[in-house]
Write a protein that binds this DNA or RNA. Structure first.
Length: 567
RNA sequence: CGGGGGGUAGCGCAGCUUGGUAGCGCGCUUGGUUCGGGACCAAGAGGUCACGGGUUCGAAUCCCGUUCCCCCGACCA
């Protein structure tokens, strides 16, 4: 392709309102353009990349027996009501009405529609197993789209669904998907890990996420570099050994101290000149309509996911706090309460005493709190988010907290959807059984952004060969020099038939051409200039800087094809 | 939903405090020079200053409302 005839517009300057590197480069290299918050247009160069990623996904999905189909994005409310998700999904759904006032939504995911097909089409164990997938646009009205293309309101997703007779068979489908995902991400040049995850709105028990390490990521995982433990921070556990970090005197008497500062851990620890670990956070929650104190040490934070396991939970409002504990937020605590409130303490606290917490009186805290002596804990549970440096449960080594981008998620759905929507089959014995399902998602856009995030330098993108929008970029340095021009076009017309080749035939100065080449990141460059042409040669160079060779101009095409085929 | 920042040429920005002809850089067009690392000279085109209302002789600028974009947070005491 001739650059001069293509919509490949690069930007010299950093675009406004971008904060991560992949966002900036994808706009500067002319891959995408923003339309509205969380919605982007793909320009030709970006779409070629997405297409290449989709090609890989399809190949790997087909390899495990997946059958591609295509479902509507416009869906009726009735299906969602059958599973209760019309309400559950709430405002995240783009809901609309048709002209007859029928409730519809733009599908945020497709379990219901897939199950709807399964319940009509699958009647016998002989129909199973099945794996169906599609590559389709999803709509989610996110609370806050962020990080450029990482959290979008409209995005492309490869979602697949497995249908099996029982758990054992499901396991096979699940493992096939894990294998397919491993292959997809490897071929995309991504360095990733899998972690246990929470299944959120999807339901079901087993779920794993595929994660790429990146500072720009909005997910946080906990990893142990020694033994390989890894989990999403929401569900990660720290080992016992980190719980002995704080040792305080058991005999310290319970005393009330005047703390005329804001009630935050930060302020109180500074005022009393004690480490944050001495403080006990006392958080009042309403769980299953009942007030509950959640207690944890001053250095750790609550995991929303872990609270969710206790029941339907929400934080108490300031008014409720005042009524139940008799003080403002920041000065409340589980000691000496007038009303009876359940108390759940993080297991971390089991070994601690001499703690400081709110005295249920504004501007006062208790110190010397001993959990055994001064109050009755109803239950010790795991509540906290693991911090960097906490100890590993398995090996005792220090845990690391790292930012990641979630590029894939695989779920066991069990019979959640088949039971509620009536997708049954008859087994060999003629018994009616719900289909055991799994669902599996990955997003080409996320993959693209993750690749940029992990494959770039200060000058631009460095595409892996299989993903790149073009494999080769021919750069005639001075297009007005007839010899340069002719050589370039001769090589181009030969190479263009064999691999995707772009020729920078613009009448631009060399600086512009080199800078743009670095920015858009085509893996192989053929540089044609008067200097090397004097001896009948041209230069072949890889974008990553690992390869550079001067060859006879007649051999250029052959040499490049050798590299393309080898990789 | 709460808080903060922003919207002026295709892109990045200045001008706003103190109201008085709408500017700069990049990009774009034309002509010329240049060509192994974002070249130079010259001449141009391009604006509903987000939108609506108000104050004023006069508003990009002051006041009110709306809207869109970005960031942080969403009860972490």
């Amino acid at each position: 392709m001739k650059w001069s005839k293509k919509l490949i517009h690069t930007l010299k300057e950093q675009p406004k309102n971008v904060e991560n590197i992949s966002h900036s480069l994808s706009i500067r290299a002319g891959l995408v353009r923003p339309l509205i918050s969380g919605v982007y247009s793909y320009l030709p160069l970006g779409w070629r990349v997405i297409s290449n990623i989709i090609t890989i996904i399809k190949k790997e999905m087909n390899r495990i027996g997946g059958q591609e189909l295509f479902l509507p994005a416009l869906t009726p409310s009735e299906l969602w009501e059958e599973t209760g998700r019309w309400e559950e999904y709430g405002k995240e759904m783009f809901k609309l009405k048709d002209r007859r006032n029928r409730d519809m939504c733009l599908a945020p995911t497709h379990e219901e529609i897939m199950t709807e097909i399964a319940r009509k089409e699958i009647t016998s164990y002989k129909d199973l197993p099945q794996i169906w997938y599609q590559i389709q646009t999803k709509f989610r009205d996110e609370i806050r789209p962020r990080g450029g293309l990482f959290r979008l309101r409209q995005f492309i997703m490869k979602d697949s669904y497995s249908f099996d007779t029982n758990d054992e068979m499901f396991r096979k489908s699940y493992n096939l998907h894990r294998e397919a995902y491993n292959n997809i991400f490897k071929r995309c040049g991504l360095d990733f890990i899998t972690v246990k995850a929470s299944s959120g709105l999807m339901g079901g028990s087993l779920s794993e996420e595929f994660m790429v390490f990146s500072e720009s990521g909005e997910d946080v995982v906990v990893v142990c570099e020694k033994c390989g433990y890894k989990a999403n921070r929401e569900v990660a556990k720290a080992g016992e050994s980190s719980k002995f970090k704080v040792q305080s005197s058991k005999d310290e008497p319970l005393t009330k101290v005047y703390t005329p500062v804001k009630g935050s851990v930060e302020e109180v620890s500074k005022f009393l000149k004690v480490p944050k670990t001495k403080l006990m956070k006392s958080l009042l929650y309403i769980i299953d309509e009942e007030p509950v104190f959640l207690l944890l040490d001053g250095e750790h934070e609550l995991s929303d996911e872990k609270i969710r396991k206790l029941g339907t939970a929400r934080a108490a409002t300031p008014d409720e706090i005042k009524t139940i504990a008799g003080a403002s937020p920041g000065y409340i605590g589980p000691v000496g309460l007038k009303t009876k409130v359940k108390k759940f303490a993080d297991t971390f606290l089991k070994f601690q005493s001499g703690l400081i917490t709110g005295a249920n009186e504004d501007m006062y805290h208790f110190k010397g709190v001993n959990l055994e002596r001064d109050l009755k804990i109803d239950e010790y549970v795991d509540l906290m988010l693991v911090n960097d440096g906490d100890k590993c449960e398995n090996c005792g080594d220090s845990l690391k907290v790292k930012h990641t981008i979630e590029i894939g998620h695989i779920f066991n759905l069990g019979t959640k959807y088949s039971s509620s929507m009536g997708a049954f089959f008859l087994n060999k014995k003629g018994e009616r059984r719900p289909i055991v399902m799994g669902s599996y998602g990955t997003s080409p856009e996320r993959i693209m952004m993750s690749i940029i995030e992990t494959h770039h330098d200060e000058d631009g993108i460095i595409w892996p060969l299989e993903i790149a929008p073009y494999k080769v970029l021919i750069i005639p340095l001075n297009i007005e020099n007839p010899e340069v021009k002719n050589t370039a076009f001769t090589i181009w017309s030969d190479l263009n038939e064999k691999t995707e080749t772009l020729i920078d035939d613009r009448n631009e100065s060399v600086g512009v051409k080199f800078k743009d080449a670095l920015l858009i990141g085509i893996p192989l460059q053929i540089i044609i200039g008067e200097r090397s042409l004097k001896t009948g040669k041209v230069e072949i160079k890889s974008r990553d800087g690992k390869f550079s060779k001067v060859v006879k101009k007649e051999d250029a095409s052959k040499e490049v094809i050798k590299i393309v085929n080898r990789e």
